[in-house]
Design a protein around this nucleic acid. Structure first.
Lengths: 198, 198
DNA sequence: TTAATAATTAGATTAATATCTAATTAGATG
DNA sequence: CATCTAATTAGATATTAATCTAATTATTAA
């Protein structure tokens, strides 16, 4: 994710009314009327804020009859926050990291986060480290092969108790996709690219 | 933490030059001269941005000779991000939660995050849930009694492998304080208040 | 104390933002 | 089609922000 995108999201969040809109949407979708009323703003002002939120990718819109309903895009919001922290604390995506450094980095992360029994000590909070760990696990599944949710849970449990979180991360970072209850590992080429700190 | 504080932090982050300053500071402290040069800005402009960052609590300043050095305040930055997500996804601090609901909430969190063997399945990512879990663990230490770092590590390990992270959280949320290597649990009255989503 | 260097404050300018009212467009329904 | 309602666009305005140059203040060092 590039700097201006992240900066723009923060600019959009840097307004009390927009923040309130997001808070209200966390309770479920709402249309322009409701928002205008509750925030004591005119309809055009709500449109104004809504389009900023939409352009930044923080909300979605759905038309029903002649109401437009807004709803949160929670995964994306979390992604941006994550990327934001990566940006600040890892000096902005470090795309200049060499392959060698990269491999050394991976090795040290794996060494630190996996115990000698092969189990995951904890899920890294830092974005890049988390990706290393997820990648390591998902690599042990066969690409293309369909797995049931139960199988995936069992697979993850051999590394960590909290299979639900990790399963969600697999999907979120596109290491796998889900289609009516069946999980499939994506091929390496589709994985989140290292260098772009997604 | 109140809304306007959070909003202000995002406003401050919503400028590319300020974001760049933070990125540069993650590599270590820098003075105004260096920043001005690297960002191709005049000194007054750097002062302008720096004071915004300082007022928002994102950086600290230290004077040495006649240079002023800026450095990141990483814990606080993470706190705000955390509070921000809490705000959006839990409708802004829910101070109206009744004692009963509160207790029910705590019970369900504990049930979900601790296994029947008494071990912590994972560290909750959601702010409020994390506090519940931390509180539960720290309650089992005697307030006022000094513990060595080793003792604290052992204590935490009975719940979770990743004692370093949890020990840091204890300090960060002021459940404990550390004084030259000795850890002491704070009394309940000093703990992060529930209702304010800190 | 004076000179040198860094930082801040003052003042000005330009650009961007948030907000409103009025006009217009889009859909739904009698 | 005519009308109603909701949403958007246009246009106006007042406020805030980012940036610069010039002047001032603070700190060190000769």
């Amino acid at each position: 994710m590039q700097l201006d995108k992240i900066v723009n999201v923060h600019k959009v969040l840097g307004d009390p009314n927009r923040m309130r809109i997001l808070m209200m949407l966390s309770g479920g979708e709402m249309n322009g009327q409701m928002l205008a009323q509750r925030l004591h703003l005119s309809q055009p002002t709500v449109t104004f804020h809504a389009s900023k939120l939409r352009e930044a990718g923080l909300v979605r819109e759905r038309r029903d009859k002649n109401h437009v309903y807004f709803s949160l895009q929670p995964e994306y919001i979390k992604e941006v926050f994550d990327a934001s922290l990566s940006f600040i604390f890892n000096k902005g995506g470090e795309s200049s990291m060499s392959v060698a450094t990269n491999e050394t980095f991976k090795a040290s992360v794996l060494k630190n986060f996996f115990g000698k029994d092969g189990r995951l000590r904890s899920i890294p909070a830092q974005y890049k480290k988390k990706l290393v760990v997820l990648e390591f696990m998902v690599e042990q599944l066969s690409p293309g092969q369909p797995y049931s949710e139960k199988e995936i849970n069992e697979f993850i449990k051999q590394f960590h108790e909290d299979y639900a979180t990790i399963r969600r991360e697999f999907i979120m970072h596109e290491y796998m996709y889900r289609e009516n209850g069946i999980y499939v590992r994506n091929p390496r080429e589709m994985w989140t690219k290292w260098e772009e700190v997604h």
